[in-house]
Design a protein around this nucleic acid. Structure first.
Lengths: 270, 270
DNA sequence: CGGGGAGTTGAGTAGAGTCAACCATGGTGG
DNA sequence: CCACCATGGTTGACTCTACTCAACTCCCCG
């Protein structure tokens, strides 16, 4: 079994399956199903791993309930698209589990992965008419899908949601600017080290030893994210392994043995 | 006389000087100066080249007047900073004339120019406590400076201003994503061509022949913006000149002779 | 008129890309 | 259940492009 399959399955076992079940039945049955509803008195959002980080966390009570009923949970298989660049914007998404890559493509096929989105992250624009990138699942992925007009409606009513969305946009800008210096000025070692360091720090395990990072995406996604070729990604990971900074138990998992050294390498201090 | 000096002077002659004069006297004299004010019945913003593109265009009448009194116009000389990365956010700025570079710097001195800001553009965060980049004038520059808390106040009251700010942030995200593919995947020729093409298209002179672009920044700024070295920038510009796509009357000016071909080169279609 | 910084040009080099072979692994079908 | 195949990942040899270092030119300014 692959690591990403394990990931998805584990998540499914924990709570996504219930959320999904819940949501799907809710939609199938329409809104008027009090008996069924009493069986699920707890909002699915309460048990959702993505909720506290996601946009919907800015809503509460009735507003949240209303918003939820406008959404739909979807399973996206590896490689399948959520939407394509320059398609009309109709929905935006919150990733529940799995991971999505955002890509820009040049006519001759060259590709740049603009970013990855995982649990709790927003995918998709809500402004300007057209999407800015292709969004595709890098492994089996579960998302919540909401119509953008619903978002706009909520935004008018909820200052909290406005603030949340602005915060998310600001974080996107900050992340893109950081990525800009990586792409323009860093060496392959620094790029890979930065990438792994950032993934590690997302797990909130700072201070711990042997942090295990799962890489749901393939080498070519990493390459296109860091502005490298697959070969260079592979060689560089091998180098870090040889220097005992990381272990690579499988192609889709990395164990950070020396996070200190990884951080040093990430900014080229050595 | 250098091209940027000419630019600044021309702008000054046209309307910035009056705006500046106006604003400076307004501030010196405080708000209660009816006689003086009658001499300037037209809001300085009305004659400001930056206004219709800038954030303040989302305000009208009294709200605009009030907002304006909270601002200050400043002249920033070549190379001088507006603020530094990780400084506490206190002000945000609108560029009136001239140009500002936004930079990220690594400890060993490597630099990435994240973007340039010119007439009507916003400079500075208003969120998250710290600035994300150094902002420095690339040539003599005039800006309007506003306290961030004033922006936040106006935002609560004005849905138009909220919308405007969101739009600006969305454009920043879009621009950064476009830049990401340039940095990660484009060749020097494509980078320079894209850079010149984008500058040309800002001038709204599409269709015209021999579009003259002024490059207020130096070669090293361009290099750090495009992820190249000065030498490569210089060589590449020379190459485009040799191929008769552009003319280079001076180091700080470029005339696009074949905008079609420039666009082709920008996306590497040939 | 002379000094200095910015820009250009040239020669040589290093490092990431390309091409190709090889290996591992997971999924499929007999 | 095992063998095979396909895909993705790794490693090696070679190439070529963009960087480095250095010399030179051109202005701008005093």
């Amino acid at each position: 079994m692959t690591y990403e399959a394990m990931d998805v399955q584990e998540n499914l076992l924990r709570n996504d399956a219930e959320i999904l079940e819940d949501t799907v039945t809710a939609f199938r049955s329409g809104s008027n199903m009090p008996a069924r509803k009493r069986l699920y008195p707890v909002s699915p959002c309460d048990s959702c791993a993505a909720h506290k980080k996601a946009i919907c966390s800015s809503l509460e009570g009735q507003a949240l309930d209303r918003f939820r009923t406008k959404g739909r949970t979807r399973i996206i298989k590896v490689g399948e698209p959520l939407f394509f660049e320059s398609e009309d914007i109709r929905y935006f998404y919150t990733v529940i589990s799995g991971e999505v890559r955002l890509c820009n493509i040049l006519e001759d096929g060259r590709r740049q992965v603009v970013g990855f989105r995982s649990c709790g992250d927003k995918v998709g624009e809500h402004f300007g008419g057209k999407y800015l990138y292709d969004a595709e699942a890098v492994c089996d992925t579960i998302v919540c899908q909401f119509p953008v007009r619903e978002l706009e409606m909520q935004m008018q009513q909820s200052p909290e949601m406005r603030a949340k969305l602005m915060k998310i946009m600001q974080e996107e800008i900050s992340e893109l600017q950081q990525h800009t210096i990586l792409l323009g000025r860093k060496t392959p070692i620094e790029k890979i080290a930065t990438f792994l360091k950032n993934r590690a720090s997302k797990l909130n395990l700072v201070g711990e030893e042997n942090i295990e990072i799962s890489l749901s995406m393939g080498r070519s996604d990493i390459a296109d994210y860091l502005g490298l070729t697959v070969e260079t990604v592979s060689r560089t990971i091998s180098k870090l392994k040889a220097e005992k900074v990381i272990d690579v138990p499988s192609a889709h998992a990395v164990v950070v043995r020396d996070i200190q050294q990884l951080a040093v390498l990430a900014d080229g201090k050595k």
